[in-house]
Design a protein around this nucleic acid. Sequence first.
RNA 1: GUUCCUGUAGCUCAACGGAUAGAGCAGAGGUUUCCUAAACCUCCGAUGUAGGUUCAACUCCUACCAGGGACACCA
Length: 648
Amino acid sequence: MKNQLVDLLNSILAEMGISNAAPEVEISDNPLHGEYTTNVAMKLAKVLKKSPMEIAGEIKEAVSFNGQHPNTSKKDRTKSVKLAKLDQFSVLQAIDRVEVAPPGFINFFLTEATLSTSLRSVLKEKESYGMSQEKGKRIIIEFTDPNPFKEFHIGHLYSNAVGESICRLFEASGQDVRRVNYQGDVGMHVAKSIWGMKKKLSNLTNVEKLSLPERVKWMGEVYALGAQAYENNPKEAEEIKNMNYLVFIAAQEYLQEKEGWTPQVNYRQYVTVNDADLAVVRKLYESGRTWSLLYFETLYRRLGTAFKGYYFESKVGEMGAKIVREHIADGIFDQSDGAIIFRGENVGLHTRVFINKLGLPTYEAKELGLAPMKEQDWHYDASYIITAKEIDEYFKVLIAAMLQVAPELGAKTIHIGHGIVRLPEGKMSSRTGNILTGESLLDSLKQKINTILDKSETKYDKKESELIAERAAVAAVKYSLLKVALPSDITFDMEKSVSFEGDSGPYLLYTYARCKSVLRKAGDHSCQLSAVSCQLNPEERAVCRLIAHFPDVVAGAAATLSPSSICTYLNRLASSFNLFYAKHSILAKPSAVSGQLSAEERAESGKPALPAGGLQAESSLRISLTAATAQVLANGLSLLGIKTVERM
RNA sequence: GUUCCUGUAGCUCAACGGAUAGAGCAGAGGUUUCCUAAACCUCCGAUGUAGGUUCAACUCCUACCAGGGACACCA
């Protein structure tokens, strides 16, 4: 609709002799300002040396005249611009009237028939309502990126929620999306963990007997042990650094055996390897890596993400190091102090180390190796990488380097930094073990929801209450994370996020379930929307216009990569519906046909008395409105990666 | 010190340079003989400071203040 209005305005302006005006059409927030609005008259005032009101008046008359609105005066008919190919502008039929408001806004009001037609579109198109049918680009998105051997904390939950939602927004706009995950299976954090495992461990089989979540929890503890030793004890820090080589070698050998991978680098050249030590590290490495990755999969399932590709630092590191070494001769990288660096100062940034003096690739070099591997796997038009924004600066340097070594890849790599999740008590730190894991968060939310369900009058069997609690918990977390616009930090208050009132995921689920409940009661009579003849009351109209806006909202959210605008929209839709629900009866009650209720409603909406059968038509409209609201809520929630429930 | 991000109501957040700055929570009051009260209604309450650009500034520019991140071998 938005685009059609832009086209219409462009044609009218062209007739008026104005090109390059680039009119912008926006959704009106306020129903008093119509469904769509444009500020083009104000923008043109200076160029045309006319008052904005005058220009707006001319545009209004042009729309009215070509749309053959009855209110076009005779005078206007003669002087108004005339569009040649009228049939190209079906949007004219959708416009009920145009209003000009000071200081020069032009507001478009849609006809009620158009609004009810969009209800029909929703009911017909179902889950594809609002989604583009165009064929788009190939996009690869990397997100979540938890590190094996470390916790999956609330920050990963955030990265996952943002990434998954952006994927869905891209898909909604027709792009071909590949989800990938990049995981640090080698490096100092692994060395710290394994050092801690070795230190704490008397018997690995005791740990093996634990459940998977318990094993992973244990790994969080040993990581904290290793990280603290690294910081506080220079001798132990040295042990950990040396163990890092063994980790690299263990990873190579493991992947060689398991996946038939052929390593290009021999890390044994840097260190004398004690085979007994290596065997211990190798054993711990295999266990820890396997446990972590299995555990992560359980979370992806809960969160609703299915990755199509996994990349590991162990593999991309070699490729990255190779690329860096190849570009020392041409001066892109410099050797300095035993390390290989990129001098970002030349492009207004800072210097970063790509290969450290031990000869190992840093994260920077690994990322440089990752890009061509992704390209080889997917041949993308754009590559998005979603991480916490604390590495924004580092990514600028990285992309600057990539633009030199692989310009075509650098040009299509986009980094999106999201905020950091803070707890009201302060910062999380896996170093000290003070973290909120994704799983514990979800589980405590579930517990709270179960308490509420137990108190409810509705009786659920165990299976259903489990489903509701799980989905509402995920909804609560995802919504509270996604409603904040990127890249703001998030203060995650456990207590507040479990209050399921107001602007929250469960509020949306509740509204959806409420719609479904009404529809169940309506039975077969639902969804037979004939041409709507009755006038819409303000609450019905408010819901209808929001439903009509949905496709434009989705397109806008996809274009600006902002899941938060979907959240805002859905909350608004749910509120509008709930107000409508509170004020009007959806299902016609037999007693109301001749009773007081319809009289009351007539009085408040200023409607004429209903013709015979009018109430039925009204009820039919309201049922369709309810069905359409439910559908749009479900579609929007799906874009956030949230699943609905039929009852709650 | 350099650089990036962020400052909106008591708290947590909205608002392509547009109209009367919107919500939720907290606080005060109200709504259920009727489709799910996890709901609805009313009240209370805000753009860090100082300039500038513009018909129009929370939004853009400059300076300052405050908080956070990055600034060579962690990611």
